[in-house]
Amino acid sequence: MRNGRAFWLFVGPFAAGLLVFVYVPIGWSLLLSFFDARNTVTPTEFVGLRNYADMLTDGPFLSSLGTFSVFAAFIVPLTFVLALALALLVSQISFMQAFFRSVFFLPTACSYVVASLVWKLSIFNGLRSGLANTVLGWFGADPVAWTVSTSPPWYWLVLVTLRLWLQLGFYMILFIAGLQRIPAVLYEAAALDGARSWQAFRFVTLPQLRTTSVAVLLLLLIGAYQAFDEFYNVLGTDRGYPPFARPPLIYLYYTALGSGGQDFGHGSAGAVILTLLIVGVTLLQGRAVRR
């Protein structure tokens, strides 16, 4: 009895919050996706699957999905490899390990918005006095409008470095935790069998990190499709968002909440499609990795 009360005392507020702030909105948006819900959240005109059909033939939405599949295809492996490399380096050094661990982890504590503004306004602004352009200036190069130019698309450099800086440390910590769980005897046995360091990594470390790797890949993939903050803050202006590098969530944000054109039906349908896509890709990937 007392156990039961304690259980609800601890779990209740959280469960209630989850219900009110997560599950009810999810259900509501599912409902809205079947209605013509322009400028209202209590629609009356049922349209069946029309919103879905519209979104699946909607050029900008499809192109944003395409762009972000490409974005995921390279940000996910890149972050994975770099985070693993960092974790291996940090766990192998014998001095000041805690210091390096903290230093690499620290950017994770930084807000996406703050980091975006630093990247956009001080490092990669288009003026001669911007940090990146100052460095270019030393080599006699002309200043580059990093976040404006689309050919070549320098904005990807800004966005990818920003995302790497912000999230590498977090995934590094996950890998370090994984590495610490690998029993030392495995390495000793491998060494006795004559394994060199690459072989030890290939046949001991990597297989032992499988669970961690799956988790990291999943989180990275979901993170890539859910990109919003840094894109919105780096590329968005008061005149809206440009048609390139537009994450699906930003497109949906403008569809559902843009001033004057609140279209919750199409916005919700797009959100459901995006969710299904993430779930689908995640399941496929889980299957592929587990074999």
């Binding site: 404006v148 130019s149 689309t150 050919s151 809206g240 440009p242 054109g261």
Partner: peptide
């Protein structure tokens, strides 16, 4: 001039101006 029209027009102009 609703936000749907505005987005379509601004996208078009941006593609012309920046991407040629």
């Amino acid at each position: 001039w609703t936000s749907v029209m505005r987005t379509a027009f601004n996208d078009a102009v941006s593609r012309v101006v920046r991407d040629g």
